[in-house]
Amino acid sequence: MKKKHKFETQDADIDMTPMLDIVFIMLIFFIVTTSFVKEKGLIVNRPDDAQKSNKPSKNVSIRIDANGMIFMNGRQIDLQRVEANIQSFLAENNTDSAVIQADEETKHGIVVAVLDQATKAGLPKLSVLVEKK
């Protein structure tokens, strides 16, 4: 008679502990050696929540023609009355800027005098535009 050989099955277990240790060590290595790059870009000054309003604010509009005549919001005024007119405009409107539009032929002394009057009236932001013919 033939004898049958009986093979015993052995449980082949793989010990996973050393592999998990290596994985965790590699994970820690990559976390520590990663360099986090701070992106460079422009800094944007956004308005505060307190400055938001539903209606747009009006700017003080001053126009100086070639003859040195000064017009504020469409009506003619004297150089000495610019500050008082701006203050009365500021009492009615909430703004902090003015636009001074001067003709190309206007003498710069008048423009500088108007800028001084606007600064004295309390306007911190002034813009000067020149009309070219």
Rank of each mutant, 00 (worst) to 15 (best):
M1S: 14
K2I: 14
K3I: 15
K4F: 15
Q10L: 12
Q10G: 08
A12D: 03
A12W: 12
D13Y: 11
D15F: 10
D15P: 00
T17L: 14
P18Y: 09
M19I: 15
L20G: 11
L20D: 11
V23G: 00
V23H: 09
I25E: 06
I25F: 06
M26L: 13
I28K: 04
F29Y: 09
F30K: 03
V32F: 10
T33V: 09
T33S: 03
T34K: 08
T34I: 14
S35M: 12
S35K: 11
S35Q: 10
S35R: 09
V37E: 02
V37T: 05
L42T: 11
L42R: 03
I43K: 03
I43S: 02
N45H: 04
R46L: 15
R46C: 08
R46Q: 08
D49E: 12
D49W: 09
A50P: 00
A50D: 12
Q51R: 12
K52H: 11
N54Y: 05
K55Q: 05
S61V: 10
S61D: 08
I64G: 01
A66T: 13
G68F: 07
M69E: 02
M69S: 13
F71G: 01
F71E: 02
M72F: 04
G74F: 11
R75T: 13
Q76A: 14
R81L: 15
R81T: 13
V82M: 09
A84P: 00
N85R: 11
I86L: 12
Q87Y: 06
F89W: 05
F89T: 07
L90G: 03
A91H: 10
E92M: 14
E92N: 05
N94D: 08
N94Q: 11
N94P: 00
D96R: 13
S97R: 11
V99D: 01
I100P: 00
Q101M: 13
Q101L: 15
D103Y: 03
E104G: 00
E104M: 02
E105M: 10
E105K: 05
T106F: 04
T106V: 10
T106D: 01
K107P: 00
K107Y: 05
H108V: 14
V111Y: 08
V112T: 09
V112I: 15
V112K: 10
V114W: 03
D116F: 04
Q117S: 07
A118F: 07
K120C: 10
A121Y: 05
A121S: 07
A121D: 01
G122L: 08
L123Y: 05
K125T: 12
K125V: 15
K125F: 13
V128T: 10
L129S: 05
E131A: 14
K132Y: 02
K132A: 09
K132L: 04
K132I: 10
K133F: 06
K133H: 05
